[in-house]
Design a protein around this nucleic acid. Structure first.
Length: 478
RNA sequence: CGGGGCGUGGCGCAGCUUGGUUAGCGCGCCUGCUUUGGGAGCAGGAGGCCGGCGGUUCGAAUCCGCCCGCCCCGACCA
């Protein structure tokens, strides 16, 4: 059938990914290395993700702010671990207005520095706390190797930065936002994720604890889908942010930060996509239902489009995002393939035979045979169909993850398992970074997460055999 | 940073080894006709500083030098 097919996932997953991103009109490379042009179809997906997150941020009491792209180099240098972690990937502006600058400016790789240097002025009393702010922005991190959406030098994200009067409150905030991420990933993006805590080695520079939600892509590699950090008093101390408590004593503020980026668009593509292209969950799909009219004569065109418009109006009335593809220059078969490539969940075909029978033909992107439906039923039942597709995508991905999650009882099992096909491998770990590094050196896998609450792994370290203190989950990751 | 590849109409490529006068092909685009229920066919047409700079030569897409950029693999990466 189809000419001009995509590379298949099983033969060459990276080639499949790049092709699908480009051909589906999601994004293309920018003019400078590591930059990305996000096209309308890709940006519309991002807008739905933004809406899903932002609504929940507001519902949990947060407000949006905007901090500058540029700030003095010296600001970044105040938190030792932070600057050490980010120094290699920071871009520095040295010239402006045709002159060399007296003090170089950094382009933000993240905004803790500029924000905490400002919070210093906003926080004096416990009555000023908590500060629950978020910003939507771009950041820049010089990367050696880049991939569209998954790792680009410049990317879009949101970064939440909160300040609290107690450690407990900040820790609650950290986990509250992790839960928001989990909910958005699973309920909106239909990407099943596992929440967890990062090992010290994988922690955000400057954090006391980093939490993550991790997904498993169709090539059995893990993807960090969002992170939430408990920063303790590290940044308050570095930027001198103190407040008077109820007893009139000065205390350093407690901090969190949390981020979710355009990387997750890559996560959606790699979680749901198949050899025909994208499969977008209805909650995110810019177009949820596409109507393809089929006709030969002008007369047929008129009657077919009349029905198509009636269906469109009915669906629009039900708050469903619908589009009629009435382009004349393509035949129906071409349109079917193109909309499948773009991941539209439901396609309705309306031809002369359907007009006569008062019906439409429905095909869903999650498969099954085409169905014939009465026009009225297609309209009234569409919300249910979309819900079903949303659930199917989530359940398929969840089954896939479960089928590829394994228990490692000894080092050989872990090593051979990871070499053979990655997936998640869970097992006891002693907590020693040496053992962590040994696994990475031999298998390229990293510890993706530990349980949020430390739990007895019920066995000895799979690497060294000493008593286990953590239950670690390993995988090769993006 | 190391290894490899590539830069030629919008996209994908050929031509370069063995320099030669109108630089080809496919897709796409424009016009017309026929088509339209799984990626249409025919005919006509438009569109190119051959990545940049310099050199060799009567003559350079082609040979030489330098530079720029991108992609892939590795090292690296919250």
């Amino acid at each position: 059938m189809a000419k001009d097919r995509l590379p298949s996932q099983s033969e060459d997953f990276p080639a499949w990914y790049v092709e699908v991103v480009k051909r589906a009109g999601m994004a293309e490379h920018g003019m400078a290395k590591g930059t990305m042009i996000i096209k309308p179809h890709g940006y519309a997906v991002w807008e739905h993700i933004q809406r899903a997150l932002d609504d929940r941020f507001k519902a949990t009491g947060h407000e949006n702010v905007y901090f500058p792209l540029l700030f003095p180099m010296s600001l970044l240098e105040k938190e030792a671990e932070h600057v050490e972690g980010f120094a290699p990937e920071v871009a520095i502006v040295t010239h402006g207005g045709g002159q060399e600058l007296e003090e170089p400016l950094v382009i933000r790789p993240t905004s803790e520095a500029v924000i905490w240097n400002t919070y210093k002025n906003w926080i004096q009393s416990y009555r000023d706390l908590p500060l629950l702010y978020n910003q939507w922005c771009n950041v820049l991190r010089w990367e050696m190797r880049t991939r569209l959406f998954l790792r680009t030098s410049e990317f879009l994200w949101q970064e939440g930065h909160t300040a609290h009067s107690t450690s407990e409150e900040a820790q609650e905030e950290t986990l509250r936002m992790l839960e928001v991420y989990r909910e958005v990933a699973e309920d909106e993006l239909a990407v099943p994720v596992l929440p967890g805590r990062k090992s010290p080695k994988e922690r955000f520079p400057g954090a006391v604890d980093t939490y993550t939600i991790e997904g498993l892509m169709r090539d059995k590699r893990a993807l960090q889908c969002g992170t939430s950090h408990f920063l303790g008093q590290n940044f308050a101390k570095a930027y001198d942010v103190q407040f008077s408590n109820k007893d009139g004593e000065l205390e350093y503020a407690w901090a969190t930060s949390w981020g979710f980026s355009t990387r997750m668009i890559g996560g959606v593509i790699m979680t749901h996509g198949d050899d025909r292209g994208l499969r977008l969950p209805p909650a995110l799909a810019p177009v949820q239902v596409v109507i393809v009219p089929i006709y030969k004569t002008d007369e047929e065109r008129g009657s077919v489009l009349e029905v198509a418009n009636k269906v469109k109006d009915g669906l629009t009335g039900a708050l469903i995002r619908v589009k009629i593809d009435d382009r004349d220059q393509h035949r129906p078969g071409y349109k079917f393939s193109e909309w499948e490539l773009k991941g539209v969940p439901v396609r309705l075909e309306v031809g002369p035979r359907d007009v006569e029978a008062g019906q439409v033909v429905m095909a869903t992107r999650t498969g099954g045979d085409k169905q014939q439906l009465a026009v009225g039923d297609a309209i009234s039942g569409m919300a249910g169909v979309l819900d079903r597709i949303q659930t199917e995508l989530y359940q398929d991905a969840k089954s896939f993850r479960e089928d590829n999650t394994h228990e490692a009882t000894d080092f050989d099992t872990l090593r051979e398992g990871l070499e053979a096909e990655s997936g998640f491998w869970a097992g006891p770990w002693c907590g020693d970074e040496a053992c962590e590094k040994k696994v990475t050196a031999e298998t390229k896998a990293t510890i993706r997460f530990l349980p949020i609450e430390r739990e007895d792994p019920g066995g000895s370290c799979v690497v060294c055999g000493r008593s286990g203190t953590e239950r670690a989950t390993w995988a090769r990751a993006y």
